[in-house]
Computed example of a mutant assay.
Amino acid sequence: MDFLQLLSCACIVFTLGMFSTGLTDLKKMRASQSAENVQFLPFLTTCLNNLGWLYYGTLKKDGTLVFVNATGSLLQIVFILFYLYYTKERKKSWMQTVVMVCVLFLGRAYFSVAVHEGDAQLAQLGLVCSIFTVSMYLSPLADLLEIIRTRSVERLSFPLTVATFLTSASWTLYGLQLQDFYIMVPNTPGIITSLIRFFLFWNFSPVRQDKPSYKLIQI
């Protein structure tokens, strides 16, 4: 197995592991028969991100991108359906879902009709996917500032931080190996934000470890 194949396997394993953390919310909804205290927008944005990269992987004929993001899209759709079933705010959630579907159709129409096939189409789609991925990685920065203010890491998940770091690092190396900056660059912020989280865990975790001070993932 060469280095690229090894990176491909790492990307698949680590990314699917990160996606599976959503099973915690699914289990919580089933147990409580409610979607209370479960955030809906991360499901939508992750699904939109997966579908964008799935399209990019299809155009690029990259099997790793296609497999990971097809699986991720299906998982996110399952999470969305569960949320829509259990939530009390169905109207708002359905409207947000409709907006996402409209964005997908408009995006697909633009890249299929307005942009010529080939390198230009791949470059524009890669740029859009990259910007969206970077915005997803940077969106929790406000929470990190709040954690610094309160000096408490209870709202952070240490296993999810580890999964995010390994996923971002593997995709960054994969993109570097392929010399595809649209894959490499947007995953770099994931490494940086994960390292910031690790520092917060190290700095704000209590000396006594009778009880974890951070949020655990339960599956």
Rank of each mutant, 00 (worst) to 15 (best):
T24A: 15
L26G: 05
K28P: 03
M29G: 04
S32Q: 14
Q33N: 14
E36S: 08
N37H: 10
V38Y: 09
Q39H: 05
L41R: 03
P42M: 03
P42G: 11
L44P: 01
T45L: 12
T46C: 06
C47H: 07
C47N: 05
L48C: 09
N49C: 15
N50L: 03
G52F: 10
L54V: 12
Y56H: 09
K60C: 00
L65W: 11
F67A: 06
V68H: 02
A70M: 13
A70E: 07
A70H: 03
S73E: 04
L74F: 12
L74V: 12
L74I: 06
Q76L: 05
Q76G: 04
Q76T: 03
V78I: 10
V78H: 03
F79V: 02
I80T: 06
I80Y: 00
Y85C: 12
Y86T: 10
Y86A: 05
Y86V: 08
T87Y: 02
E89Y: 13
R90I: 14
K91N: 13
K91H: 13
K92D: 06
M95N: 08
V98D: 00
V98P: 00
V99G: 08
M100L: 14
C102F: 13
L104Q: 07
F105E: 00
F105P: 06
F105T: 09
L106Q: 05
L106V: 15
L106H: 04
R108I: 00
A109T: 08
F111M: 06
V113F: 15
G118Q: 09
G118E: 13
D119R: 15
Q121W: 02
Q121F: 03
L125T: 02
G126R: 09
V128K: 02
S130P: 03
I131Q: 04
V134Q: 06
V134I: 12
S135N: 07
Y137D: 07
Y137A: 13
Y137M: 11
L138K: 01
L141E: 11
D143T: 15
D143P: 02
L144I: 07
E146A: 15
I147S: 08
I148Q: 10
